[in-house]
Design a binder for these strands. Structure first.
Length: 319
DNA sequence: CATATGTCCTGAGAGC
DNA sequence: TGCTCTCAGGACATAT
């Protein structure tokens, strides 16, 4: 389920396509229902043929291919304008979508192929860029720069890697929703999904059921700090490939952060921090939430402080 | 207005 | 073994 770390890893993986020219756009035949794709493939070709990829960015959980603007030269010929982009391809992987420059996991479920040409420098081959999506909940859209602003950027809160504790508190201090549900709201903060919300609140030592209007300033600071550390670690490990094996980076390699999950999908296991609590699974807004009832409490002292008062069995103590 | 629920999709796994 | 059923959760539509 690509969330910020997975999408950021995809983004980095397709950076080598920058400077390449789009030769054609194809929608491979697919037995299944086609993904949401707009406008038509003819429009994609008309608007993209001969254009260069100017940059690759990320907005929340979307990968953005920036398409270089054309400008008219003195003699009236169109040429590439190195100063910007006027269109954007927006890939939204949702559950099982992948943006690839390597062969996809299978020939089935290939949704889009961009044929590219460009200077073949050292590094991975970039003669095509693919969008593959097993479940077909993902989307691929071609937007103008203005549409990217109004239809994507303006609807998102600050990026999770840049959000401040006061942003979070300011948006949520009157909200009665559970904090875990609010962290999934992309209009509050962009990039966090179900898996990382659980990991973040574990690191922050906050009970996921806590109402936002009951969260203290120090707790917001710990949540903000945990957002940065958890997502940063996950990016360093190139995201999480769960047991279904779906998530892959742009070269079709699995991520590694699943080996570091502390609570996600660990119901019934002993908490890795206190070595006493048993990880619980509850359902919030129709999604699984995992947490340690001992380390994550709605009120009272932060777990790190409690450890001083009530030390858990630690490795040092055993030694 | 804020918050909650329903919807889409495929394939893995459970249970019989 | 082979069938049916449930579940996973992104974002958005619709309901309360």
């Amino acid at each position: 389920m690509p969330e910020l770390p997975e999408v950021e890893t995809m983004r980095r993986g397709v950076l080598p396509t920058i400077g390449h020219t789009i030769v054609s756009v194809e929608r491979p035949p697919c037995d299944r229902k086609p993904i949401l794709f707009e406008p038509t493939v003819q429009q994609w070709n008309r608007r993209l043929r001969g254009r260069q990829i100017h940059g690759v960015s990320r907005l929340g959980k979307r990968v953005i291919l920036e398409i270089q603007r054309k400008r008219s030269s003195a003699v009236g010929r169109e040429e590439d304008d190195p100063n910007g982009f006027d269109q954007a391809i927006v890939f939204e992987p949702r559950m099982t979508g992948l943006v690839l420059i390597a062969d996809p996991p299978g020939n089935e479920h290939l949704r889009l192929r961009l044929k590219l040409e460009g200077p073949q420098l050292e590094g991975p081959r970039c003669d095509e860029l693919l969008f593959w999506d097993r479940r077909g909940l993902g989307t691929a859209r071609l937007l103008t720069r203005e549409e990217l602003q109004s239809r994507v950027q303006d609807r998102l809160g600050p990026d999770a890697l840049a959000v401040g504790a006061d942003d979070l508190r300011g948006s949520l201090f009157q909200s009665r929703r559970a904090v875990k549900v609010s962290l999934l709201d992309q209009a509050i903060v962009a990039g966090i999904g179900n898996l990382y919300a659980a990991e973040i609140l574990f690191v922050a030592g906050v009970d996921p059921r806590t109402r936002c209007d009951k969260i203290s300033r120090p707790q917001w600071r710990r949540i903000q700090s945990a957002i940065g550390s958890v997502l940063g670690d996950a990016i360093r490990h190139e995201g999480s490939t769960l047991s279904d094996g779906t998530y892959r980076n742009a070269l079709n390699d699995a991520g590694g952060y699943q080996n570091y999950h502390r609570v996600y999908d660990r119901e019934g296991e002993t908490c890795v921090r206190c070595r006493t609590g048993i990880i619980r699974r509850i359902v919030q807004a129709q999604r699984s939430t995992f947490f340690c009832p001992r380390c994550q409490r709605r009120s009272g002292l932060h777990a790190a402080v409690r450890e001083i008062l009530v030390p858990p069995a630690s490795d040092q103590a055993v030694q």
